[in-house]
Computed example of a mutant assay.
Amino acid sequence: MQQPCYIDLEQARQVLAEMGIELNARQMKRAADKDANGQRKLPFFVDPIEGKLKIEKGSLVRIYRELQVQAENSAKTPP
């Protein structure tokens, strides 16, 4: 089993950029911040040692891949 790799907001933004998803720092922060219901768009958590938002790199990539697969499965196929 592969060890988890926890990354911060800027590193997450770079990982997404490598995948072709260009976000600015503000957009990334908005995805990590809790909404009015206390939910985050992405599974960031506060690192108990550094006090900074972190996410597991594999989880971030997996979320985007799963969404891509869902989109492909729900796409209409031509008659």
Rank of each mutant, 00 (worst) to 15 (best):
R62S: 10
P78D: 08
I21K: 04
A36Q: 10
Y6D: 06
V61N: 06
C5L: 10
Q11W: 11
S74P: 04
E18Q: 12
Q3M: 09
R13Y: 08
Q70H: 07
V61Y: 10
L16N: 09
Q11A: 15
K57P: 10
V15T: 14
K41Q: 09
V69K: 13
R26T: 02
E72A: 14
V15I: 15
F45G: 00
I55N: 00
N37G: 06
L53A: 06
L60R: 02
I21V: 06
R40E: 00
N73S: 13
D33V: 03
E66Q: 15
P4K: 02
Q27P: 03
R30Q: 01
Q11C: 05
R65M: 15
I21Q: 08
R26Q: 06
K29S: 13
K29A: 08
R30I: 04
P4V: 03
V15M: 03
F45C: 00
E22Y: 13
A12C: 07
M1K: 13
T77F: 07
N73P: 06
I49C: 01
Q2A: 13
A71W: 12
C5Y: 14
V46W: 04
A25F: 10
I21P: 03
R40M: 04
R26V: 08
R62C: 05
K57T: 01
F45L: 00
K34I: 11
V15G: 08
Q14V: 04
L60E: 10
E56K: 11
P43S: 02
M19S: 01
L9P: 01
D8F: 04
N37Q: 15
L53C: 01
Q2W: 12
R62P: 00
Q14C: 02
A12Q: 03
R26Y: 05
E56F: 06
G58C: 00
M19V: 00
D47A: 04
D8C: 10
A36M: 07
E66L: 14
F45P: 02
P79R: 09
M19L: 12
Q27D: 11
Y64Q: 12
A31K: 14
G51A: 04
P43K: 09
L42Y: 11
T77P: 01
R65L: 15
P4M: 01
E50C: 03
E56S: 02
P43H: 06
F45S: 03
R30F: 00
P43T: 07
L16H: 05
A71G: 11
L23A: 05
A71M: 12
S74K: 11
L9E: 01
R62H: 09
K57S: 14
R40V: 03
D35H: 13
L67M: 15
N37K: 13
V46Y: 04
I21A: 02
R26G: 01
E72S: 09
L42W: 13
P4E: 05
I49Y: 08
Q14H: 07
A32G: 13
F44C: 00
Y64D: 10
R62I: 04
E22T: 11
N73E: 14
L42C: 04
Q68Y: 15
E50L: 07
K54R: 13
R13V: 11
V61K: 14
E22M: 06
N37D: 14
K52C: 00
L16A: 08
A71R: 13
A75V: 00
D33A: 00
M1A: 14
C5T: 11
A75K: 10
P43R: 04
P43I: 08
L53G: 00
F45E: 05
M28K: 02
A25K: 12
E72R: 14
S74F: 12
